[in-house]
Each structure stands twice: as C-alpha cells, then as structure tokens.
Design a protein around this nucleic acid. Structure first.
Lengths: 152, 152
DNA sequence: GTTGAAACCTCAGATCC
DNA sequence: GGATCTGAGGTTTCAAC
C-alpha cells in the first residue's frame, strides 16, 4: 500500500467506473502496471466490490429509518440468531452490533409508512429474544459518503 | 421504469463494473439499447454514481462508530449550520437528521480510539449549539448492503 | 419511439522486455 | 514499470419495426 495504491483506491471509491487508462494517467502510470495494481488491491481485500449507488427516493423508497434493538440475552448464540434473522429481511440494509445499552443498530428503508410499520411489527418487535425496539425516521440526509476518507 | 430497467439497476447495484454486453445479455437486449437505458437511468437520477467498496479494516480504519447528537436550537438555520460543520469532517461519513429526541445520527470511522476521541472532543462536543453527544462503538457489522432492495 | 445491425474506435488483458 | 499487440467491449450511426 504505497502512495500510488492510496490514490487508486481513492479514485475508484469516487468513481467506480473510471477506465483503466484514465486511472493510469491520473496516478502517473501506464495502463498495464495500473491494472495489475488494481487487481492486486481486489485480491488482497482492500477493494471488496463495485456498486452503483441508487437514489432511494427515485427507486420508490421514501422512508429511511434507524432501529435500536435490545435483546434479553446477549449470549453469543442469541446475538448470532438475531443477526441471521435480520439478514433475511431485505429492507434491513445494515446491522451493527454496538456497545452500551443498545445491542443493535439497524438501518432500514421502506416504500411508505405502512410498509415500515408492517416490517416493524411483523419482523422486528416480534423477533425472538427482542425486548425493545426504538425507531427514528430520517427527516433528511445531508451527508452520505461511502467507505472511508481517502486523501486526494 | 419498466421491468427491464428494474433488472438493470439491480444488476448494477450488485456489480457496478459489469460490462455493458453482459448486462445486455442478462436482461435480454443487445448492447446499444442497453447502454442507452443505463445512460437514461443515470441522467434521470435513478443511478447517482458508481463506487468501489473498500474494506475499512484493510484501509486502516479499525473503528466504526455512531454518534447521536442533540442541539440546543432546532431552528432551521442552526440545523443547517451543524450539517455544514460535519460536512467538513472527513471521518463523519453519514449525517442523518432524525425525528424524536435525537437530532442527528452520525456514522463515523477512525483509525484508532485515540483519533476517535480527538474527533469527538475537538470537532463534535465542542461544535456550536451542541448539547449532547452519545456515542457507541461498533463491535461488529453483520450486514452492510448498499442502496435499496431490488428483486432479482 | 425503441430496437437491432454494422461500423468504428477505445480499452482490457496478455506477453515480452 | 513500460512497450506492443490482439481480441473484446464501448459507442455512434442508421435502418427497420
């Protein structure tokens, strides 16, 4: 991971469809070594994939919300069981286990309030081992940068 | 937004570097109309960009955390001022305004606990108009899907 | 108005230095 | 890391449905 690699991941994080030749120009290499570096960054696990970013509103998802979930038992098996449960709910986009009073923070999307409520009541509040689910709706999102900071 | 367009955005969300010819095959078109549809989806705002997904750990960011921030004044100008403030902090990756007691939920990353603490004390707790900042560290992330659900 | 066929041109990927 | 080459893919043009 030298300065050129850092530039490469930064450029690819900002624009995942940049062509290899433009990428090479930007970092001051010719195309073949540039491509070799990118492949190496993928294989070594620095780059885990490439994704189109979709506008949730345009895609019909007017609701973005967060759910703070507490469980009765924090035994590893029960934590993992909850994680498997939410893995099967497509509207739950992220599931983070936290320290402190809240066990899990979920980010979820829904097409409207009715669907949001039905996910909540049918899939979250009634899930095994759940004692508390506090939700907050997103009023607006002012910053939504993918990944991590990369200078340049 | 017909069934072919929905397939296209789904495929591009899952694999942002898929070639246009493979994309065309998957949706049952030839390359030219497929490319036109993708360009249209970009121009109409359904697709907002393409990004390489980076592994935060591999990139040296061992800490992912959430901060729940409450402000003294919720006047629009004060809310916007806070949003502008966090927009300038590269380690803050997301800023969502929520309903309820918490005004803002921030997702942030840091290289280590020392850097996390310094961001907290130097940039968040001391920011204008902030009354309370509660943070939770992420123990592990079991699900981290970009975007929205797309069937297929 | 959208698709498909053909042409062109650029790029990706392999080989060798 | 760089130079060269070949085949594949991206992009435009235009005819047809």
């Amino acid at each position: 991971m030298d300065p050129i690699d850092r530039k490469l991941v930064g450029l690819l994080q900002a624009n995942g469809r940049i062509t290899n030749v433009e990428l090479a120009q930007r970092v001051g290499l010719t195309a073949p070594p540039c491509l070799r570096r990118v492949r190496a960054l993928e294989e070594r696990g620095f780059i885990t994939g490439y994704h189109a970013a979709l506008d949730p509103q345009a895609m019909g998802y007017s609701i973005t919300a967060f759910a703070m979930v507490s469980l009765r038992s924090q035994a590893e098996g029960d934590l993992a069981a909850f994680e498997r449960h939410v893995a099967g709910i497509p509207e739950v986009r992220e599931c983070h286990m936290l320290n402190g009073e809240i066990d899990f923070l979920l980010k979820l999307v829904a097409t409207d309030l009715a669907q949001f409520q039905s996910i909540l009541t049918a899939s979250l509040i009634t899930a095994p081992n759940v004692t508390s689910v506090k939700t907050s709706l997103t009023i607006r999102t002012s910053k939504n940068e993918p990944g991590v900071p990369v200078e340049e």
